[in-house]
Design a protein around this nucleic acid. Sequence first.
RNA 1: GUGGAUGUAGCUCAGUCGGCUAGAGCACCAGAUUGUGGCUCUGGGGGCCGUGGGUUCAAGUCCCAUCAUCCACCCCA
Length: 422
Amino acid sequence: MQVKAPRGTYDILPQDSVKWQYIEKIMRDSAESFGFREIRTPLFEHSELFQRGVGQGTDIVSKEMYSFNDRSRRSLTLRPEGTAPCARALIEHGIYSGVMPVKWYYLGPMFRYDRPQTGRYRQFHQFGVEAFGSNSPYLDAEIIILLVEILRRLGLDDYELHLNSLGCSVCRDDYRQKLLQHISPFKEQLCQDCQQRYMQNPLRVLDCKMETCHQAIRGYPIFYDHLCPYCQEHYSRVQAALQANGVSYIHDNNLVRGLDYYSNTAFEIHLPGIGAQSAVGGGGRYDGLVKELGGPDIPGIGFALGMERLLLALDMLGKREFSKPSLDVFVVVMNDAYEMQGLQLVSELRRRGIRADKDYGGRSGKAQMKYAGKTAARFVVMVGEEEVEKHFWTLRDMQSKEQRQLGQEELIDSIRSVIETK
RNA sequence: GUGGAUGUAGCUCAGUCGGCUAGAGCACCAGAUUGUGGCUCUGGGGGCCGUGGGUUCAAGUCCCAUCAUCCACCCCA
């Protein structure tokens, strides 16, 4: 049995890596234009970081972590998300004692043990941003504007932005009590899953798909109506700021993010039409996280975008064509005897900034021409007996089929004059 | 973790009710007189029929298991 890539992982081959480079550049440029700078944290961390930072009750910690003991029996975990590591780094380096807010972005693989499906992998990639040290609602809005801007630059304008407020720890606990009180009498009528949710995270009962559950809990109190004055004010300012910037959103009472550290603003962005895993990004405010991890009580907010899902969307909905980078010149050596001259020529062309390659298969001139055609090289330079004897090169323009005999400097100049105007 | 579909060449697939050395298209390689690409023609290489077991005189085909992929649930990115 041959060895294959592990379940839920895959190779990104050159034809696809150009797409990755394309979206990565858009993300970096966008984030940097908003004043974010890149941070790179380790791919694995002490398991404890995620247990405390993400939360014991979450799906991520309870069943999706890739954890292992290293040789000195420390429990380590391949990072399932990027926020907790950023918070850890912020604390570890005392960054919070400098200029605030701290605005970081990151880009890279995340790991979750989940059942693979289209748009869902065990090693997947996220682009994310985090801003620490400000609880201004306008920062919340700015973060969302950045998210939307990235989608716009990618040409994926047809999104749905869901927005909600999860309140602060005070009004959330308050609401939770009210909700439990409301549901309690109908507990028996809930589905199996919801009976569980009732115990662990009653807010999740609200977006159960089962009709019977909807019926059972109808008339339930709406969180929106129970936010404390501070949280209400915060949320309405976020909304006003989004409106003022022309960002349309859907207020969604049922949006309950899975990670424990969220507070106040929470959002999720969907691209309908890419299958079941339509959430391409999500995020929110996590004002308690840094303190929870042993740092000072400073607020934070961020989001993460799923790169695979964006790529999927680009393939399915995008209009963009990706041209593969092609060679400028292919050097055809007509006779084995002149291999050395051919090699010297490609090397010189490459030194002069020309993308050049040659054949190493010892193939016939005709076969090399054929191969040159496939590489879509603009020019072929022929190296044979006549060229070497008479000190010139034969340059063939593969588009016009014109051929000229040129000295080396003329050759380079004439290649450059064409490729530089491209 | 639950339910369903599917696994035959690098890719897309055909292969009847079990019955010859398992096929096609594309891709790849080579030729079509002498140093020249794309088109055409000819030829060639390449398959433990996902893997393991079972039924049978005989299994790509039937049965079981297992692995993987896909779809949905769940959850999210």
